[in-house]
């Protein structure tokens, strides 16, 4: 499959995937299929296995057992798959001594974008992240919120089909958090699939589909409304608490 053609069947499929580090099992036998064009949330406390799952998708780590495929059949880590993924880690993984636009140019070039297309795309992304007016500012001179938006910009610059966001709103103020979610929703509407980890219930509520993770085990899977109903709770937060207590894998 070429980069740029995405299977409409599914964006990610995990079949009995296990990941262990030494004697520690970070992810127990996990099966999951995520269709494209949706915001998919991984909700769980710290150490639940959210980041491990995300890193498996990036190909940075390999499953100890089981099978994981992307975009209808590509192995994670395959060049074609990597070209279609945009990965935003928890840390501010961006170059503080470069300007916003220099960072975006760098990451765009890493994805092999042509100079003309890249410059046009940067203008679009800058509009999206609302940093057009600060495009030439060195990151070290920007506020924390702006740097996080620039980080998102560098993740979007090569028009990824699948966006992997590891707690993108950690440490972000409520106004910026709303803005980031508006951006994500817009991207999803335009056809980007988004896999996002969070431990904020309010954010999980904004997802199209949510998986509850606890100690490396999926204990809930469905739309926020489905999960709320399934656990006979008033809201998603209470549903998560009930699911956590029951520890039932769906």
């Amino acid at each position: 499959m070429n980069a740029g053609t995405v299977s409409t069947e599914y964006i990610l499929r995990m079949e009995d995937v296990v990941k262990t580090f030494g004697g520690f099992t970070a992810l127990h036998q996990t099966s999951l299929t995520i269709p494209g064009r949706m915001v998919f949330g991984l909700l769980g406390p710290n150490g639940a296995g959210k980041t491990t799952l995300l890193r498996l998708v990036t190909g940075l780590i390999s499953p100890t057992a089981g099978k994981l495929t992307l975009f209808g059949g590509l192995e994670p880590g395959a060049s074609a798959a990597r070209a279609m993924i945009g990965y935003m880690p928890q840390s501010l993984a961006i170059y503080p001594n470069l300007s916003v636009v220099e960072n975006m140019l760098f990451f765009g070039r890493m994805y092999g974008m042509g100079e003309g297309a890249l410059k046009t795309r940067i203008d679009e992304v800058l509009e999206t992240i609302e940093l057009s007016g600060r495009r030439d500012d060195i990151l070290a001179n920007l506020s924390g919120g702006m740097v996080r938006r620039a980080l998102l910009g560098t993740t979007l610059v090569h028009k990824p089909k699948l966006l992997l966001l590891d707690e993108p709103t950690a440490g972000v103020d409520p106004v910026l958090r709303i803005k980031i979610w508006e951006t994500l929703r817009k991207l999803c509407d335009e056809g980007t699939s988004i896999l996002i980890t969070t431990h904020h219930i309010s954010e999980a509520d904004r997802c199209d589909r949510v998986v509850f993770l606890r100690s490396g085990v999926i204990i809930g899977d469905g739309t926020p409304d489905d999960l709320t109903r399934q656990y006979q709770a008033d809201d998603l937060e209470k549903a998560f608490v009930v699911a956590t207590k029951e520890g039932v894998a769906t």
């Binding site: 060049s79 990597r82 501010l92 993984a93 890493m110």
Partner: peptide
């Protein structure tokens, strides 16, 4: 430590 190396390794580089 900053995580930029990890990002580069996720990219087709």
């Amino acid at each position: 430590l900053r995580g930029t190396l990890e990002r580069l390794l996720v990219a087709p580089v």
